[in-house]
């Protein structure tokens, strides 16, 4: 169990850094979506299903969707 959580945390940090580094904003959005998803899973492991649900619904789904729309309407690549 511990191992799984550690891997998840590691993955989360990696995707967070990736979201910062990616020049293609669409990729960055997806990476931040991954962060949210892993966070949701972690919340679940920490016995907080309510928060996990909110994180999954809002962080992973809605915010990503809104970001995608925003990126599509502006520039896709960071300068």
């Amino acid at each position: 169990m511990e191992i799984v959580i550690l891997i998840l945390v590691f993955l989360m940090i990696v995707s967070a850094i990736a979201a910062l580094i990616f020049k293609d904003l669409m990729n960055a959005v997806i990476a931040s979506c991954v962060v949210s998803l892993i966070a949701a899973v972690l919340f679940y492991f920490l016995q907080a299903p309510d928060v996990a649900m909110a994180e999954a619904a809002i962080g992973a789904a809605l915010v990503t969707g809104i970001f995608v729309i925003a990126v599509k309407r502006t520039k896709r690549f960071e300068e």
Binding site: P49, A54, L62
Partner: peptide, 25 residues
């Protein structure tokens, strides 16, 4: 389902509402 069963199971109005919104998305 989530918001109707908010007082019984995990989740509630916010989560349910967000899911509905993502349906519209």
């Amino acid at each position: 389902y989530i918001f109707i069963h908010g007082h019984l199971t995990p989740g509630g109005g916010f989560q349910g509402g967000a899911i509905i919104a993502s349906a519209f998305l």
